[in-house]
Amino acid sequence: MSTLALNSRLGAALALCRVSNLPTVWMNVLTAAFLSDPAGSAPYAAPVLLLAFSLSCFYCGGMAQNDLYDLDHDRVHQPFRPIAVGAIALGAARALTLASFAMGFACLLLAPHRAGAYAAVALVIVIWTYNRFHKRHPSTMFAMAGARLLVYIVTALALTGRVSARVEVAALAQASYVLALTAVARAERHTAAQRYRWPVVPWMLAAMPMVDGVVLAVLFTPVWLFVGAAGSALARAGQRRIRGD
């Protein structure tokens, strides 16, 4: 197998999983971790990194599953998608989806509290619900928001076995933002003849860490605004190499 072929397959897998958006997940996990401690002290790095990787796996699995369900639509409307263009085979995409979810659960079993793994079952159900029905039922945008909310819940439960009121506030703030983002993205898809002149959806995706930054800045210190901005900049930089929308 040539290096070029390997890079092509790797690139297709990364695009399938929308890895450019992963900084948004990492910021969600970091926010939930800090808010789970009553004193707001820095959590231990190891479990937070483990959870960031675990939730990244769920995100990647969800994105891959999304393209599997949307294949017929993508072949007509979004032929650049990895499966639709033939850059990655159906079997490989299915295997990547299952492996991502399995790895996510495996990591959660190593977390301080098993409650996170139980909550992740709800996360996978919500992800599947959105992916399976979102083309036919606009109300599934609430499932998309719910999936992002559950990132905070899973993190908090895995770290402490409970969900504090502050975690709930951050989760609801982000879920509300994702609800607005999903509505904007759906409006663009349904008015293809009048696409946004400016990349609104990619920028809204990249701005998600700033929502966490604002919440943490209000609760702790304005320094968190810079952390949120850094997360957004990282996501936007990644989108220039791998599409995140």
Rank of each mutant, 00 (worst) to 15 (best):
P202L: 05
T24F: 01
V218G: 00
M208N: 14
D67I: 00
S20G: 10
S176R: 07
M208I: 14
Q174C: 05
P38N: 06
T31L: 01
M204K: 12
A171T: 11
G104E: 06
A193E: 11
Y59C: 04
S56G: 14
A45H: 09
L157G: 04
A32V: 06
T129W: 13
L110P: 13
A95V: 03
N7F: 02
A158D: 06
A173I: 05
G62M: 10
A15R: 05
L181S: 05
L123D: 01
L49I: 13
A171V: 09
R9N: 10
C17D: 02
A106T: 13
Y152L: 05
A206R: 01
G11S: 07
C107A: 15
Y196E: 00
A64Q: 11
S56W: 02
D67F: 00
A102P: 03
G11D: 01
M27W: 12
G161R: 09
S41M: 05
P23D: 09
G91P: 02
A64P: 11
Q65I: 04
A143I: 07
A235R: 02
A230R: 09
S8A: 15
F133V: 00
V227E: 08
R81S: 09
M1T: 11
V29F: 04
L219N: 02
R9M: 04
P222G: 08
A235D: 03
W198F: 14
R9W: 01
G62P: 13
L30T: 13
Y69W: 15
V29Q: 06
A45L: 15
L51P: 09
F34N: 02
A117D: 06
P23I: 12
L55Q: 14
A111R: 07
R9T: 07
T31M: 02
L181E: 14
W198K: 00
F142D: 00
P23S: 08
L157P: 10
T31F: 01
A158H: 10
V223R: 13
A5Q: 09
S8Y: 03
W224K: 06
M141L: 15
F53H: 04
R94M: 12
T97V: 09
L30K: 02
Q78H: 12
A120K: 12
A111C: 11
V169F: 07
P209M: 13
T221L: 03
M27V: 14
C60H: 03
L157W: 11
A233Y: 08
N7V: 01
V201W: 01
C107G: 15
M141Y: 03
F58V: 08
L110E: 13
A39V: 02
V48T: 07
F220N: 12
G11V: 01
